[in-house]
Write a protein that binds this DNA or RNA. Structure first.
Length: 267
DNA sequence: ATGGCTAACAACGTTAGA
């Protein structure tokens, strides 16, 4: 049995629970990793997920902003909510589970956006983002230590030239500056991760998961960025079956500015 | 590169997203 894992920055899970339900009913992923749930655990719509068959849930939330949650139809054996940069601002949860004879650890991340000014001396949000990525690089080391693992989430960095609509024009814009893209590549190298999305979509093809709310017509201008990612460690590389970017979700009524990404693994 | 939208909240402006 293949295993499917979806990731989606939902930009308020309470506001968009009906969109999430429609997505889950249509796609039935085994596991869904959400970012920017924007609520504390007590306000997470747990019953709505249970009703859809997602009985196993780990929420790492806080009031108002950020927050991640992993919900699963497959039992969760263990979980970890890790704080980064000496603060608990609800940006990570990991679960371990076994699905179809396939044991794995699944990390769900929400990396700081980093503000507007790409200068760590002038902008503490950007400094925080760089420190967070550095801590990821130093923590997620070595495929041997990571074992069979999947890392998903809104990493808020578009690392490759064709992960943005214009490489040249985005070089100075937070999410595509060289210091960020170099750091994200260092996180990948340190863990020995495989970029599952680019495993299936060649690097010379544009690939986006986010389109700004500010565009008058997101589809016509198509100035997107690939901010959401799916990585796997080498033990799972041979099991990769495919990736789907649900671009149509950006056109739904009152959408998130991010769309879901689904990865399928052979069980 | 601008643009100027979207959401939460001890809320009707401020902070945050990216």
């Amino acid at each position: 049995m293949p295993l499917s894992i979806a990731t989606w920055n939902i930009n308020s899970v309470r506001l968009r629970i009906d969109l999430v339900a429609a997505f889950l009913e249509a796609e039935r992923p085994d596991i869904l990793c959400l970012q920017e749930i924007k609520c504390i655990e007590a306000n997470f719509p747990a019953a709505a997920f249970r009703k859809l068959g997602y009985h196993h849930q780990v929420v790492h939330g806080q009031k108002g902003y950020h927050g991640v949650a992993t919900v699963s139809r497959v039992p969760i054996r263990e979980h970890v909510r890790r704080g980064f940069c000496g603060k608990d601002d609800a940006r990570h949860v990991a679960v371990s589970l076994e699905a179809g004879g396939l044991p794995l650890t699944l990390h769900n991340f929400y990396v700081p956006a980093g503000g507007d000014e790409p200068d760590p001396a002038a902008n503490e949000k950007f400094a925080h983002k760089l420190a967070f990525l550095g801590e990821m690089r130093d923590w997620l080391t070595g495929a041997e230590t990571l074992g069979p693992a999947v890392l998903v989430g809104d990493l808020n960095v578009a690392p490759l030239e064709n992960d943005v609509w214009s490489h040249k024009q985005m070089l100075g814009v937070v999410s595509h500056t060289p210091v960020e893209t170099d750091l994200l590549k260092a996180v990948i190298a340190s863990g020995g991760w495989i970029d599952a999305m680019r495993h299936f979509v060649p690097e010379d093809r544009k690939l986006y998961t986010w389109w700004s709310y500010r565009a008058q017509d997101w589809q016509a201008s198509d100035r997107g960025r690939r901010l959401d990612h799916v990585w796997v460690t080498p033990p799972l590389g041979g099991r990769l079956l495919g990736i789907e970017v649900k671009r149509e979700a950006r056109g739904w009524n009152r959408p998130s500015d991010h769309v879901p990404v689904i990865v399928r693994l052979a069980g």
